[in-house]
Amino acid sequence: MDAATVLIQAMNGIQYGLLLFLVASGLTLIFGIMGVINIAHGSFYMIGAYLAWSLMGWVGSFWIGLIVGVTVALLLGLVLEWLFIRFLYDRDHLQQVLVTYGLILIFSELRSMIWGDDVHSVPIPELLNGSIQLTENLAYPIYRLWLSGVCIVIAILMFLGIQHTRLGMMIRAGESDREMTKSLGINIGLVYRFIFALGVSLAAFSGMISAPISSVFPGMGSQVLIVSFVVVVIGGLGSIKGAMIAALLVGLIDTFGKVIHLDIFGVNIFPEMSGMSIFALMALILMLRPQGLFGRER
């Protein structure tokens, strides 16, 4: 591989990592603050991508579709929290897993009823269609750069929001002591509902902006869910910083695993087994540091 290929693959890896961060941060927020494991998180990503596809068809503009889609996801999050999730705060993990697993089945079947089981593609919005010339014969698509930029902006906003706003203060208070926060007159139920809806819309938003660079297909939800779990396990549960670093690591390893060619003892390790590389990394982290890179000792 020459330097230019490495550079392009590195940029792809970082971009994939940033996208993973958006999905995984929603997961880790919902767990870190509310103590709920939400395995339906991937479904919201999938719903986002399908929304992007069908809204493009209806309104014809990617941008209006994006706004409408995020609004829909936010409302969906609020309704789901009110219907199901709020009953799960005091329950054990097994029931949380089962309720959200049931939601996966429901959403995947609804998706099949509404949108069918076909694979679709979403065109890149015209404004960002094109590429930047890096060297004479290598170019990088603008859309991918824009996507990375958006992810970075959201990450910064999230960090500032949690550390420096009144709402962020309530969230952090609710995280450390739910009962105490309640008795100080803060409607913690409402804060939780907002957090859950935020997580849902983050996942859906990631699905929507990733739709133009990858195809829209039924299994995309569980695929992203599993990779996000790997990210969260590596980064440490409830840690936004850990999620960021782990997501970048996973993005880079996964991307490079697909382009490297490596045979050991005649067995083709890469790229044939590249699907396993991130799991191998996770196993290594589990051996060396079971609480994750930035997880608290518990």
């Binding site: 029931q95 309720v99 995947s108």
Partner: peptide, 13 residues
């Protein structure tokens, strides 16, 4: 699967 999902959610809740 829709029906199965609903049954699971209801049972777990």
């Amino acid at each position: 699967q829709l029906l199965t999902g609903i049954v699971v959610v209801l049972v777990a809740l």
